[in-house]
């Protein structure tokens, strides 16, 4: 089960907080985030720009660099804390145990090297020097993402945006990691390419059994694909639970607002309201519940009392509405 530690977790993030040192003061971009990910599980993290979702992903992958800093918490990969490991130890772990697919493939791929050369770099850095082995594996992973092997000789600029993202995913699969983290890999793609990439990731996940953490701003995109969903607002998880359950019955007013922000294409045409206001600055986050200035259900207490995560029928919701109904979780 999600939230409570699964029997055989692959990743435990415990009380993780990340701050950025800025001229305007310390900004807490990720605030006390805890979750557990089981083997082969697909977790979607959704939130708007500046909510800390990408920072959280970087913190898990130990890719933060100053001014960002993981000031608190643990990141346990199969029980081993990644926090504080040296770069040398970490570089052996990355790609082999977990890999990261970045938002912009054009920036993540080296523009002056062929795809084959970049695959080779990854393999060699992890102790695979055999030429035939590298060749075979490169062919295998490209086939997995339905790209013809002739493109091993291509440079990134010769590929379309969708193909570049597929190459990134192929590269992430090179060493068969048990966890792949993806940071908005489809946001630069057209809707047809986006849907096709999502279907393919899901198929690969079924076939190869790796776990996925998928960060996106597009709640509607993830609805069909993730097992569990975490909704993030202003650095905190405000709701987490099984994806289908959250879509069927969103409990946090922010989640409700987000779902109501997507005009439907197939259902009846209804007037939507979105969410008033704009996401807050994290330099001076609102007091009490961070969502209260935009919340339609806000009560006077919301401005002063910081809600905990409450257990409500298998969902965890950070909202005072559920204070009496739910059981505090943290």
């Amino acid at each position: 089960m999600f939230g409570a530690a699964p029997d055989d977790p692959i990743l435990d993030v415990v009380n993780a907080s990340v701050t950025y040192a800025t001229s305007g003061g310390e900004v807490r971009a990720v605030d006390d985030v805890t979750f557990h990910l089981g083997r082969g599980e697909f977790l979607g993290i959704v939130g708007e720009s500046g909510c800390g979702k990408s920072t959280l992903l970087f913190a898990i992958a130990q890719l933060l660099s100053p001014p960002a800093q993981l000031i608190e918490g643990k990141v346990l990969f199969k029980g081993r804390n990644l926090v504080g490991l040296t770069d040398r130890v970490l570089s052996a772990v990355r790609w082999r145990d977990f890999s990261v697919v970045m938002q912009s493939a054009m920036n993540a791929l080296n523009p002056v090297k062929t795809i084959a050369a970049q695959f080779e770099d990854v393999m060699r850095a992890h102790g695979h020097h055999e030429h035939a082995e590298i060749r075979t594996r490169s062919h295998e992973v490209l086939a997995l993402v339905s790209i013809d092997a002739v493109h091993l000789k291509s440079f990134p600029h010769q590929l379309s945006g969708g193909m570049r993202q597929r190459v990134m995913i192929a590269m992430a699969l090179l060493l068969s990691p048990e966890l792949i983290m993806m940071d908005e890999p489809t946001s630069a793609l057209d809707v047809v390419a986006q849907r096709s990439l999502m279907v393919q990731v899901k198929e690969l996940q079924h076939r190869l059994g790796f776990a996925v953490i998928f960060v996106t701003h597009d709640m509607s995109l993830i609805g069909n694909f993730s097992d569990h969903l975490a909704v993030m607002y202003a650095g905190k998880f405000v709701e987490l639970g099984p994806t289908r359950q959250i879509f069927a019955l969103p409990r946090h007013p922010y989640t409700q607002g987000l779902i109501e922000s997507f005009p439907s294409i197939h259902g009846p045409k209804v007037r939507l309201t979105g969410i008033p206001g704009a996401p807050p600055s994290l330099v001076e986050p609102p007091s009490g519940c961070r969502f209260h200035p935009r919340c339609l259900a806000a009560m006077p207490r919301c401005a002063t009392v910081e809600p905990a995560l409450y257990d409500v029928d298998g969902d965890r919701v950070r909202c005072l509405i559920y204070e009496t109904a739910g059981v505090p979780h943290d």
Partner: peptide, 18 residues
């Protein structure tokens, strides 16, 4: 191809949007 969490997936990976 439009994401609609309320509807089942109808498009396969056959068309990769080239």
């Amino acid at each position: 191809a439009v994401p609609d969490p309320r509807a089942p997936i109808t498009v396969g990976a056959a068309d990769i949007g080239e």
